[in-house]
Computed example of a mutant assay.
Amino acid sequence: MEQSHTVEALLTALRAAGEGTRFRILSLLGEAELSVKDLTAILGQSQPRISRHLKLLADAALIDRFPEGAWVFYRLTEAGPGRRLVTDLLSATDRSDLVLARDRERLALTKQEHAEAAHSYFAANAEEWDTIRALHVAEDVVEAAVAEALGSQSFDSLLDLGTGTGRMLELLHPLYSRAVGIDASPDMLAVARANLDRAGITNAQVRLGDIYNLPLTRESFDLVVVHQVLHFLDDPERALAEAARILRPGGRLLIVDFAPHDMEFLREDHAHRRLGFDRDQVGQWIGAAGLALESAVALPGGKTDTLTVTLWLARDERMVIAGGEGREVA
């Protein structure tokens, strides 16, 4: 049964949305997730004024806020009556309205600035990333293996842990209805946002988060991907247990990482905490998290001195059984 506003909540939401600047904010957040700084630049108003408008919209459950270091990003609320109300209001709006059209022009300039900043960060770190990529099988081979492991059947929701540049969000975009990427680096999140924007992907978002303590509810995603992340962690098993907590019954967990190796310089120069993982070791962690290992595929490099990439695919074997007005988990 769909949730509906109480009369009092509906009036509060309409009062929040029914003011010029706040409606412009909703229109902009319908195009992209933005910070207070972004909105201040686009709307030409002071930070305290914009912050006040954002608070009223958030209190009315029309937008969500996500702290990211010293910044806070805002986006339209994801679901519920608030999202339906905003969607209806925006769909009834004339997009050729001069004020809103001008706001979108300024938004485009802001996005361009974000993309340029992301490009600069990426360029500054490109040599390090190129060094790692040169040590293992080509990325397109890994991505083809990821696609083969997951198949072509669409699903509702994807969670990408340690999303980095957001590449998995781009690669799997044809399959999911919504996606969230989590990363601990604001710089990498800026790169991911720019990449998603460039690719025209609007049903994926990225957030700052702790992989050991995800800001997400239990059993909320159909697929969790952990791509080249575990080797940076002190406690990979704990991270996988947290990933399993997020999986819905029948959901899948895909892990991509290196097999054991002796390239000590990766630990010293590139912050790798672990020098790869044994197939059975990851399998044990998967079992301890309450999941069943379905497959483990090794992708050796083309040379004897290159790294082997392994893909582990696991599943939550609980089945969802429809019954009565609710659902039971078997």
Score class of each variant (00 low, 15 high):
154 S>H: 07
155 F>A: 08
155 F>E: 12
157 S>P: 00
158 L>F: 12
159 L>D: 13
161 L>E: 12
161 L>A: 11
162 G>S: 14
162 G>P: 04
163 T>N: 10
164 G>Y: 03
164 G>R: 08
165 T>G: 08
165 T>M: 10
166 G>Q: 10
167 R>I: 15
169 L>S: 07
171 L>N: 11
171 L>R: 14
172 L>P: 04
173 H>K: 09
173 H>M: 03
174 P>V: 08
175 L>W: 05
175 L>A: 09
176 Y>P: 04
177 S>L: 15
178 R>V: 09
179 A>L: 01
180 V>E: 10
181 G>D: 13
182 I>H: 08
184 A>I: 11
185 S>L: 04
185 S>A: 01
186 P>C: 07
186 P>G: 10
186 P>Q: 03
187 D>G: 01
188 M>C: 00
189 L>A: 06
191 V>C: 10
191 V>K: 09
191 V>R: 12
192 A>K: 02
193 R>I: 03
195 N>I: 03
197 D>R: 11
198 R>M: 14
198 R>N: 13
201 I>N: 13
201 I>Y: 12
203 N>Q: 11
205 Q>I: 10
208 L>P: 05
209 G>I: 04
210 D>F: 06
210 D>N: 10
212 Y>A: 09
213 N>G: 05
213 N>Q: 13
214 L>C: 02
214 L>N: 02
216 L>Q: 07
217 T>P: 05
219 E>Q: 10
219 E>I: 01
220 S>K: 04
220 S>H: 02
220 S>D: 07
221 F>V: 15
221 F>E: 09
222 D>C: 04
222 D>F: 05
223 L>F: 00
225 V>S: 02
228 Q>A: 13
228 Q>E: 07
229 V>K: 04
230 L>W: 04
231 H>N: 10
231 H>G: 07
232 F>I: 09
234 D>C: 14
234 D>A: 15
235 D>R: 09
236 P>C: 04
236 P>M: 04
237 E>R: 05
238 R>E: 05
238 R>A: 05
240 L>P: 09
241 A>I: 08
241 A>V: 10
242 E>Q: 11
242 E>K: 00
242 E>G: 05
247 L>G: 00
247 L>D: 05
247 L>M: 01
247 L>F: 00
247 L>V: 01
248 R>L: 11
249 P>S: 11
249 P>T: 03
250 G>H: 06
251 G>I: 00
251 G>S: 08
251 G>E: 07
251 G>N: 05
252 R>Q: 14
253 L>D: 08
254 L>C: 01
255 I>D: 06
255 I>M: 04
256 V>R: 06
256 V>Y: 09
256 V>S: 01
257 D>I: 00
257 D>V: 04
258 F>W: 13
259 A>V: 01
260 P>T: 05
260 P>Y: 01
260 P>L: 03
261 H>N: 08
264 E>S: 13
264 E>T: 07
264 E>Q: 14
265 F>M: 15
266 L>A: 08
266 L>V: 11
267 R>H: 12
268 E>W: 05
269 D>L: 11
269 D>R: 15
270 H>I: 02
270 H>R: 14
